[in-house]
């Protein structure tokens, strides 16, 4: 009897957790669809998404992240060169290192490091900003003024992320390749010109597209997770802190998992 009671509690808890996840993903889709609706239909209803707000967000998300992104990507490039040379030396094929760097950077590391950085920088800031607006009744105030919070707050952010994350990923690609080239010069004596020639030869447009396509998905994931955690804040200032942490952890986890799934399906 007691055993069946315990298992019933377990099943109930499982069911609730599953329902919670379904609800959360439903919320992401609704938020995404509604933002898209306002971006497209807003101008016809005389309620356009303000481009000024989107540009301000682009500056906040993109430009200010640039120095740290370049630094991190450069370091990743150097690291890939070191590991690549070390591994390939065992086969005496260390001159092939450029191939490894160029492909892994454009297809994988550029978009990934960008997404992780933006999730940490902007995803958390987004959840905190929307969350504190929620507990200060600013969201309610917008709603009663007849200003749709999704149009006013969510759509510009998503638009900014969708533009900036791919751009930043491309910059990250270049910075990582540059990092690789510097180490190849120092460690292998490979000149800059042959390095870049080889990189350009090995990398197809498809490789770059694949990376950029992924970064679009990452941008959506970061935006939707940050926004929905912000909009659903409860429990005052402490709740905002919780939502911020949750937004970062979830966004980075989703980015990595989606990355794996995408890589699998794109390379079949």
């Amino acid at each position: 009897m007691a055993e069946s009671g315990a298992s019933r509690v377990l099943v109930e808890r499982l069911g609730r957790t599953a329902a919670g996840w379904v609800e959360e993903f439903g919320y992401y889709f609704a938020l995404c669809a509604e933002s898209l609706y306002w971006l497209v239909a807003g101008p016809f209803r005389h309620q356009p998404v303000r481009l000024g707000a989107a540009v301000a967000q682009m500056a906040a998300i993109g430009l200010s992240a640039l120095p740290i992104l370049v630094l991190l990507s450069f370091a990743i490039g150097v690291m890939l060169a070191i590991q690549g040379i070390h591994t390939l030396q065992q086969f005496g094929a260390e001159t092939q290192v450029v191939l490894g760097i160029a492909l892994s950077v454009t297809r994988e590391f550029g978009p990934l490091i960008t997404a992780i950085l933006i999730a940490g920088r902007s995803g958390s800031a987004l959840a905190a900003r929307i969350g504190s607006m929620q507990i200060n009744q600013e969201i309610d105030a917008l709603r009663v003024m007849g200003i749709e919070p999704v149009r006013f707050l969510a759509a510009p952010v998503l638009l900014a992320l969708l533009v900036m994350v791919p751009c930043l990923s491309f910059v990250a690609d270049l910075a990582a390749l540059a990092g690789g080239s510097v180490y190849c010069k120092l460690g292998l004596g490979l000149g800059y010109v042959p390095y870049w020639d080889a990189a350009v030869k090995f990398v197809d447009a498809d490789d770059v597209y694949q990376g950029l396509l992924k970064s679009l998905v990452f941008a959506l994931v970061i935006g939707l997770v940050g926004l929905s955690n912000g909009f659903n804040v409860t429990g005052g200032a402490e709740g905002v802190g919780r939502a911020t942490t949750r937004a970062v952890v979830l966004a980075i986890s989703y980015v990595v998992v989606f990355d794996m799934l995408f890589t699998y399906f794109l390379n079949r």
Binding site: S132, E138, V144, G146
Partner: peptide, 19 residues
Amino acid sequence: LHVLRRNMGVAFQGGALLS
């Protein structure tokens, strides 16, 4: 409701001004 709300004004307890 959106149209109706142009005829409504609300002052919230904490002000709810956009910071």
